[in-house]
Computed example of a mutant assay.
Amino acid sequence: MTESKEQDQLLKRINELAHKNKKEGLTEAETRERTRLRREYLKNFREAMRSNIEMMRIFDNQGNEVTPEKVRKIQRKKGLRDD
């Protein structure tokens, strides 16, 4: 899965704070920023993963669709399926 520029920037800043924390420690404001950035990064990651899964169709070796019914229902609700 490719990451967006926003995710790349979040990860870069999270890593900067992690390195600073190892070297010299973080201020209270930096600790709050790190926590906020981690939450935002994970939220974005989960949304992207959920979207990818909801768009996916799974087929067996014989070419029969075996997408789980739970995913099919979500796809129907979003108008991604005709059946």
Results as ranks from 00 to 15, higher is better:
Ser4Tyr: 05
Ser4Gly: 04
Ser4Asp: 04
Ser4Cys: 05
Lys5Tyr: 11
Lys5Leu: 14
Lys5Asn: 13
Glu6Thr: 09
Glu6Tyr: 07
Asp8Glu: 15
Asp8Cys: 07
Gln9Trp: 06
Leu10Asp: 00
Leu10Cys: 02
Leu11Thr: 05
Leu11Tyr: 06
Arg13Gln: 04
Ile14Met: 05
Asn15Met: 07
Asn15Glu: 10
Asn15Ile: 04
Glu16Phe: 00
Glu16Lys: 07
Leu17Ile: 02
Leu17Phe: 02
Leu17Glu: 00
Leu17Val: 04
Ala18Ser: 13
His19Gln: 15
Lys20Arg: 07
Lys20Phe: 00
Lys20Gly: 00
Lys20Thr: 01
Asn21Asp: 09
Lys22Thr: 12
Lys22Phe: 08
Lys23Ala: 05
Gly25Thr: 01
Leu26Arg: 00
Glu28Cys: 05
Glu30Thr: 01
Glu30Val: 00
Glu33Ile: 03
Arg34Ala: 11
Arg34His: 13
Arg34Cys: 09
Thr35Asn: 12
Arg36Ser: 06
Arg36His: 09
Leu37Phe: 01
Leu37Asp: 01
Arg38Trp: 08
Arg39Gln: 12
Glu40Cys: 02
Glu40Trp: 03
Glu40Phe: 01
Leu42Ile: 12
Lys43Tyr: 15
Asn44Asp: 11
Asn44Val: 11
Phe45Ile: 14
Arg46Ile: 14
Glu47Leu: 08
Ser51Pro: 04
Ser51Asp: 13
Ser51Asn: 09
Ile53Leu: 10
Ile53Tyr: 09
Glu54Leu: 11
Met55Cys: 15
Met55Trp: 09
Met56Gln: 09
Met56His: 10
Arg57Gly: 04
Asp60Leu: 00
Asp60Gly: 00
Asn61Met: 12
Asn61Thr: 09
Gln62Tyr: 08
Gln62Asp: 11
Gly63Ser: 03
Gly63Pro: 02
Asn64Arg: 13
Asn64Asp: 07
Glu65Ala: 02
Glu65Arg: 02
Thr67Asn: 05
Thr67Ala: 00
Lys70Trp: 12
Lys70Ile: 15
Val71Gly: 01
Arg72Gln: 06
Lys73Trp: 06
Lys73Thr: 15
Lys73Met: 13
Ile74Gln: 05
Ile74Pro: 00
Arg76Phe: 06
Arg76Pro: 04
Lys77Tyr: 14
Lys77Gln: 15
Arg81Gln: 04
Arg81Tyr: 04
Arg81Leu: 10
Asp82Thr: 15
Asp83Gln: 10
